[in-house]
Design a protein around this nucleic acid. Sequence first.
DNA 1: CAGCTTCGTAAGTCATAACTTACCGTAAGC
DNA 2: GCTTACGGTAAGTTATGACTTACGAAGCTG
Lengths: 105, 105
Amino acid sequence: MTYEAVIIALADPTRRRIFESLRVKSKTVGELAEEQPVSRPAVSQHLKVLKNAELVRVEAKGNRRIYSMEKKGLESLRRYLDTFWSDALEAYGQEIFRRIENDEL
Amino acid sequence: MTYEAVIIALADPTRRRIFESLRVKSKTVGELAEEQPVSRPAVSQHLKVLKNAELVRVEAKGNRRIYSMEKKGLESLRRYLDTFWSDALEAYGQEIFRRIENDEL
DNA sequence: CAGCTTCGTAAGTCATAACTTACCGTAAGC
DNA sequence: GCTTACGGTAAGTTATGACTTACGAAGCTG
């Protein structure tokens, strides 16, 4: 059920901006904080959530922490979405809907 | 930017349960409320959010409103996710990451 | 028409999570 | 070794959003 963590992580606009910023290139916490309209500790907290959702990974480089994009979280969310395109469920749902329309239910 | 509404809509567990419940068959507000551990007005409010995200559609049937699943919202979210699998961005990001690793940046 | 059902909205409460400042540990530079 | 830079965590505040009850509109029922 890790896709829940991914959805929650991406639901916050600041967190989405941080995540999408890493799409271009990997950055330190300070670099990310400069781009964002919030304080550095706030960015740290957001990165914690993103890491928990496996949307970013950290690389310690001496004094700094270099954050980069991680695809694993996105993949689990995509798998969740894909389950909604099942043909069987689709057909069943449509049939029920038709019956309701026709007052057969 | 409608994918934002979709992510926000799916971020709430109650809303996710309502949405997934409609996967099986279309239902009235009352039916949905019976399944959920919250009041009927709460369900109404959640349905409003889901509708705004194009995750459900309504069908007025006399006194009742029959809610059913709508794929449009899911599709826009999927398109958003797919943009992260662009090979060009991937290659660029990896190259930058390599340079940082090697202190070339 | 009177009463009952269905459901949306308004208003207010409460829990949560997004923020702030303050502080601490750790690594780097002089 | 002392100072400075980087970043994580704690504690407290504030904003948001998920809930509740109360109410009203619109439609079936007898």
